[in-house]
């Protein structure tokens, strides 16, 4: 705050920085567990890996209360409209993490049933590789998202 260029007597900060800081410190996740990755997502939230260290342990059942969607697992053609509807119900600003090979690219299932990458339905900010990604990978993805929000790289 006290910066040589700031006029004395004024409390000035970069408002964007405050906003970004607030956004990253209490990020609520909508539960969108689909397949194998959902189990790893639950394991990440549970005691051993303890996602609460990053203020991320609150999984909201309602998209209205969430600002991050972790698409954990394969998205089928039948699930695609549901996923888009849940995304549309989330308030701005919102972010999407595509967790795992299936959500990112369709993975090994290049067939009629799967959407070949969830980015065909919703815009994705972070892709987490792995099949399934371990809790460490998911945490790395989440922290990368935090960094990108803080640096203003992902502007919403």
């Amino acid at each position: 705050m006290a910066h040589p260029t700031n006029p004395p007597g004024f409390l000035l900060a970069n408002l964007d920085k405050v906003r970004h800081w607030a956004q990253t410190r209490s990020m609520f996740t909508v539960t969108f567990g689909l397949a194998c990755c959902a189990i790893e997502m639950m394991a990440t939230g549970a005691g051993h890996y303890d996602l609460a260290r990053f203020g991320m342990e609150v999984f909201r059942a309602s998209p209205r209360q969430a600002d991050l969607m972790i698409v954990a697992g394969r998205v089928s053609q039948k699930m695609a409209p549901v996923l888009r509807q849940v995304y549309d119900q989330m308030p701005e600003p919102k972010w999407v993490i595509s967790m795992g090979a299936c959500a990112s690219t369709g993975g090994m299932f290049n067939n009629y049933a799967l959407v070949q990458g969830v980015d065909q339905i919703v815009p994705v900010d972070i892709y987490v590789p792995g099949c399934p990604p371990g809790p460490q990978s998911l945490m790395h993805g989440i922290l990368t998202l935090h960094d990108k929000i803080m640096s203003g790289e992902i502007a919403h």
Partner: peptide
């Protein structure tokens, strides 16, 4: 059901 149909029997 069918929201996680992956077509594994086809693959």
């Amino acid at each position: 059901i069918g929201y996680l149909h992956t077509g594994m029997e086809k693959t």
